[in-house]
């Protein structure tokens, strides 16, 4: 039998909604700046590097990465929760997804740092 001790998750629903709205804006900007205004839809190598050296763009892209990773991991967790996980399973899911999210963010930060110093 599953424990019915409820885990508080109200906070994460609200955050999921707020980050979702934020992502509509950030992804909109990302799509326009990185693809739509670019002739051919994809920047050339030097163009990407130069572009990322613009501090405004760099900050926007970094925020975008943080928000999208959080939103993605919380979303996957919600799907896993609904498979009827018990409390131990929920904890495990949260731990695994937190680690995965952290890895994605570290990877993204490494990429941005390397590219801007190229």
């Amino acid at each position: 039998m599953q424990k019915t001790t409820p885990s508080k998750r109200g906070g994460s629903w609200i955050w999921q909604a707020l980050t979702g709205v934020l992502l509509i804006l950030l992804l909109g900007l990302h799509m326009i700046a990185q693809h739509f205004v670019v002739s051919g839809g994809l920047r050339t190598f030097q163009d990407v590097i130069d572009y990322l050296r613009n501090p405004v763009i760099l900050v926007l892209e970094a925020i975008f990465m943080l928000v999208v990773t959080y939103h993605a991991m919380v979303g996957v967790r919600a799907i896993l929760y609904d498979l009827g996980l018990d409390e131990a399973g929920k904890k495990k899911a949260t731990t695994v997804l937190t680690i995965l999210g952290a890895l994605i963010i570290v990877w993204a930060a490494y990429l941005l740092l390397r590219l801007t110093s190229m």
Binding site: F45, V48, I104, A108, L111, L115
Partner: peptide, 11 residues
């Protein structure tokens, strides 16, 4: 992310 990592391999 994987695709963007190819940027590290140069032009």
């Amino acid at each position: 992310m994987a695709v963007l990592t190819t940027l590290l391999q140069g032009e």
